[in-house]
Design a protein around this nucleic acid. Structure first.
Lengths: 348, 348
DNA sequence: AATTAGCACTCAAGAGCAATGAGTGCTAAC
DNA sequence: GTTAGCACTCATTGCTCTTGAGTGCTAATT
C-alpha cells in the first residue's frame, strides 16, 4: 500500500498532468501548498512510484506522467464520488417536465449537454431492441406497389420500413391486416416479432385472404431486419477532442473519426451487461482503435430494467472525477426522465 | 481570349497541380509529351497567364498554381462533359430495382457511393417540406398522458413527434379524431398543415367532442414544428478530406468539422433554387467558413419537380471534371430512382 | 519576331549545431 | 530520513548553411 506522502504526491501529479498535459517535475510539485518537502525528497518518492508502475517518464530526464496503471489506481482508490455541482445536468429533468416528450430529443440533448460540460465526446446507445415491445403497428399504402410499415415501441421509438405489396391489394384489405397484426402482436418483444408472425398470424390469415401471403412474406422481412437492426447511437461533441493537446496530430484525429464511423463496433462496446458505471483505460480496452482512449460507461434504465448505455470517450489523461460524477448524474437523470415519460407503461 | 498554347499550358498546370498539390514549374511542363517548347517559353506564357489572373505563385520564385479565377475559367471553358465511366453510379438504379424502397436508404447509399468515388465529402439535402404532402396521419397512444403523432408524406418520409393528451381520452376517441384528420388533411402540403387544421378541422371537432380541443392545441404545435423543421441532411465521407494534402493541418480540419456541424447553414447553402449543376469556388461562396472549399451542387427531382440537392464539398484543388460528371450522373440516377419509387403517386 | 540558352537571383525546406533549461539520479552532508 | 549540491540527459529552440527547384531577364539563335 502507498504511504500518505506517496498518495499526496501521486495525486498532485495526476491533477497537474490532467491540467497541463505536460510531464510533471519535482520542482512544480514542491511549490504546491500542501507539499512541504524538498524536490529531492519528491524525486525519491517519484522514483518509488515509478518502480511500482504508477508513473512513467517520457524520456530519461523528463518529469513524470501517470501510467495506465496509475490512472487505474487513481480511479479505483482516489476518485471519491464527491458530489460536485450537478445542477447543469438536471436540465434534463426540466426538459421532460417542460414538454420534451421525445425519447430521441431527450437523448440528443443529453449527449449535447454532457459533451459540453466535459469537453469529451458523448456516445449514447439507444434502447436495445430486445428490451422493447411492440406498441402498435401501422401500414400506410404509399404507391400501388409499396407500403410503409410503421412500428411503434413501448419506449416511444418509431421505426419504419418500406416494402412491396401486391398490386391488387386495396386499403380495406390492408386495414383488416393491420387490425389482425395489432391484435396478435401488440406487447410482443420486438425481437420476437418475425417469429410470432409465423406462429400466430400466418396460419390465421392464410385461411382468410390468401393474397396476404405474399405481402406477409415481405413484411416478415421487415420485422426481421428491424429486430436485427442494432440499437441506435447518438453522439455529442465529436469535435471536442480537437481541444485536447494529445490530439493535435492529424493522424490521431483521423483515426478517431474513422473509429467513430464504425458504429457496429462502438455499439458493441457499449452493450456492456454490467449495471454500474465502468471505466476502461487505454489498453484495458479490448477494441484496438480506442486503446489510446478512456471509455466511461453507465447504464440508464426504465424502472429497474436496463435500457441503454451512456458513455464518454476521451484521452486517458481525463478529468476522471468530473467525468465520472457527471456521467453518473446524467445516467440517473435519464433514468428519472424515462421513468416519468413511460411510468404508466412500465407499471402496466 | 487565350491562345492555343496558353490553353494547353494552363490545362497542364491544372492537371498537374490537381494531381500533386504542389506548385508547377516550367520544367515539369516542358517534359509533358504534348508540349514541345522550351521551359523558357513556358515561363513567358506562365507570366502572361499570371498577369491575366489565372495563375499565381506561392512565393516569388515558386512554380505556379491556379488562382480561383483560373479554376473558374477551367470549369466554365475547359471542363467538357466527357461522359467517363459512370457505371459505378448506376448502382443506385439497381438498388431500387432490388428492393431498396426506402427513400432514406437510397439517399444514404448515394452519399456513400459518391464520396467513395470522389474522395470528397457528399452532402445531400432531403426533400423540402414544402414540396411534400401529407399521405397519412396516425396517432398512437403511448402512455396515459402522451401520444405519438406519425406523419407520412407522399415521398415516403415518416416523421413523428410525441405530444401531450388529456388523461381521460380513450383509444376510440383517438381513432375518431384520426379518421377526421385523414379525411380532411390528406393531400395537403405539409407546410400548410397547421393552418388547415384550424380552418378545416377545429371547427368541425369543437361541435362534436370538446375535449379534443386541448389535444388539438398540442397537435397543432406538432404540425407547426414539423413544417418548420428544415429538410434533413445526409452526409457521406466526412473523413475523406483527411486524405487531401491541404488538410494536413489540425486547425483546418477542426474548422471543417465545426462547419459541418452547422446544419442550418449548410442546408441553406444547398437550398439553391437554380435547377442545374452549380460550382462555387473558394471566395465565390458567400458563407465564410467554406471559402477555402469548392462546393458543387446539383438538384434531384421527382418528375420535373425540384425535390432536393446533392452536393460535393472538397478543396478548390478539385478534380472538377470527375466531380461534375459523377455528380451529374448521380443526380440523374436519383431522379430516376425516385421516379420509379413514386411514379404512380406522381402521376396521380 | 519568336524562341531559347544562359545566368544571376530568390526562397522554402532541411540538415547540422550550439545554447538553453527543465528535468533527472546519485552522493554526501545535515 | 531529508535535502543540498552536482554532474548528467535530452527535448526544444534558434541559428546558420546548403541545397535545389524555381524564377525573370538578357542576349544569342532560329
Amino acid at each position: 500500500m502507498l504511504t500518505e506522502r506517496q498518495l499526496e504526491i501521486f495525486q498532485t501529479i495526476i491533477d497537474e498532468f490532467v491540467k497541463s498535459a505536460r510531464p510533471i517535475g519535482s520542482k512544480i510539485i514542491s511549490e504546491k501548498e500542501n507539499i512541504s518537502v524538498s524536490p529531492a525528497t519528491i524525486r525519491n518518492v517519484m522514483a518509488d512510484l515509478e518502480e511500482m508502475g504508477y508513473l512513467k517518464k517520457t524520456h530519461s530526464s523528463s518529469g513524470r506522467i501517470p501510467s495506465e496503471k496509475g490512472y487505474r489506481f487513481y480511479v479505483d482508490h482516489l476518485v471519491t464520488p464527491v458530489m460536485t455541482d450537478i445542477s447543469n445536468v438536471q436540465v434534463i429533468r426540466h426538459l421532460v417536465e417542460d414538454g420534451f416528450y421525445e425519447f430521441e430529443r431527450v437523448v440528443e440533448m443529453s449527449a449535447e449537454i454532457l459533451s459540453d460540460l466535459t469537453n469529451y465526446t458523448t456516445i449514447i446507445l439507444g434502447p436495445e431492441v430486445f428490451n422493447t415491445r411492440l406498441k402498435q403497428i401501422q401500414i400506410v399504402k404509399l404507391t400501388s406497389r409499396t407500403a410503409i410499415a410503421i412500428l411503434v415501441t413501448n419506449t416511444g421509438l418509431v421505426e419504419h420500413r418500406t416494402f412491396i405489396i401486391p398490386e391488387k391489394i386495396n386499403s380495406t384489405d390492408i386495414e383488416k391486416l393491420v387490425n389482425i397484426l395489432n391484435e396478435r402482436l401488440t406487447g410482443i418483444p420486438m425481437i420476437q416479432l418475425s417469429e410470432k408472425l409465423d406462429e400466430e398470424v400466418l396460419a390465421l390469415i392464410k385461411d382468410n385472404i390468401n393474397m396476404f401471403e405474399n405481402m406477409l412474406f415481405h413484411l416478415k422481412d421487415v420485422l426481421k431486419n428491424e429486430s436485427e437492426h442494432s440499437a441506435k447511437l447518438y453522439f455529442g461533441g465529436k469535435a471536442n477532442l480537437f481541444n485536447q493537446p494529445e490530439f493535435n496530430d492529424v493522424e490521431k484525429i483521423h483515426s478517431f473519426y474513422l473509429m467513430m464511423e464504425q458504429e457496429e463496433e462502438i455499439a458493441n462496446l457499449l452493450k456492456r451487461t454490467e449495471n454500474t458505471l465502468q471505466v476502461t483505460i487505454g489498453r484495458e480496452n479490448d477494441y484496438e482503435p480506442i486503446q489510446d482512449f478512456t471509455l466511461v460507461t453507465a447504464p440508464y434504465r426504465l424502472g429497474h430494467e436496463y435500457m441503454g448505455t451512456i458513455a464518454l470517450i476521451g484521452p486517458t489523461r481525463m478529468q476522471y472525477r468530473r467525468a465520472i460524477t457527471l456521467l453518473k448524474a446524467l445516467s440517473n437523470e435519464m433514468t428519472e426522465a424515462f421513468y416519468h415519460l413511460y411510468q404508466d407503461h412500465y407499471f402496466k
